[in-house]
Amino acid sequence: MSNTNHTNTSDKLSPEMFEKLKRDSVIKDEAGRKSLTAWQDIRQRLVSNKLAMTGFWIIVFIAVAAIFVPIISPHDHFTNNLTNTNQPPNASHWFGTDDLGRDVLERTWKGAQISLFVGLMAALIDLILGIIYGGIMGYYGGKVDEVMNRFAEILYSIPYLLVVILLLVVMEPSLTTIIIAMSITGWINMAWIVRGQIMQLKNQEYALASKSLGAGAMRIIFRHLIPNAMGPILVTLTLTVPNAIFTEAFLSFLGLGVQSPVASWGTMIDDGVKAMSIYPWRLLFPALFLSLTIFAFNVFGDGLRDAFDPKLKK
């Protein structure tokens, strides 16, 4: 690869024959096109997808607002103010107030915090359990895979809503309970994705090379195989979030989730429905932001999938 033109037959090698390359000098691609790493390529495809980027910016907006609005806002989400109930949106309460005089803007963004927290936690737990379980299933294969897969299948065949509701009966309804309940069956999908990926990757040369150098199973799985399976894992993760957010809102709406005075979009929609004929803003704002969030995560996840696997894009 050096620039020396003569590669012939002098008996002695002298230092002049070699040209030192600088440590980070790049060998130019002959076609003149900048070579892109896989991740740059993916990012380029993602950025050029307008719908996905819209979703991305909505997520950023909602996350930033969820963090900062409750800090900046002069109101808080739980103090009742009975002289100021059911005010329509105005200068001091941009989204109006509810039946206890609480600021709907403040509560909407407190609800956003809960939704995003639930979404992230559910995704994180799914990720950890799914990678460990799926990684082991896929790597070892054979009997181990069969037994573990059967177990996952049985768990998966139990309807998700029933597990969640049963757990909520046994444990107190709270945020933790919701997250635990969602995690019990939530990770299985991720485990299957990881399993499929690992099965494909484990016979690749680099995995074999690592194995022949004496690396253990755990090292091969987590150092070599998982990073290469990151695409499908990330996509699954992104699409887990809107489901988790919806489930939390759904349970809170039914009165089985987050309890008052904590604000959640689900409880706010429940309250809003009861009052919608007279005070529609109490329904409008939580409903709007719940839909926006779910929409944003879905289109972003779709875009991510297309970016990782352009073949899938139709």
């Binding site: 809102a249 709406f253 689900g266 529609p280 839909s291 779910i294 929409f295 879905n298 289109v299």
Partner: peptide, 22 residues
């Protein structure tokens, strides 16, 4: 299809109830 996916039933139902029915 995207709209149908994005608007969860617990938002769509009350909205329809409010406008189309009430």
């Amino acid at each position: 299809a995207v709209i149908g996916m994005a608007i969860p039933s617990l938002v769509m139902a009350p909205l329809m109830q409010y406008y189309l029915a009430f």
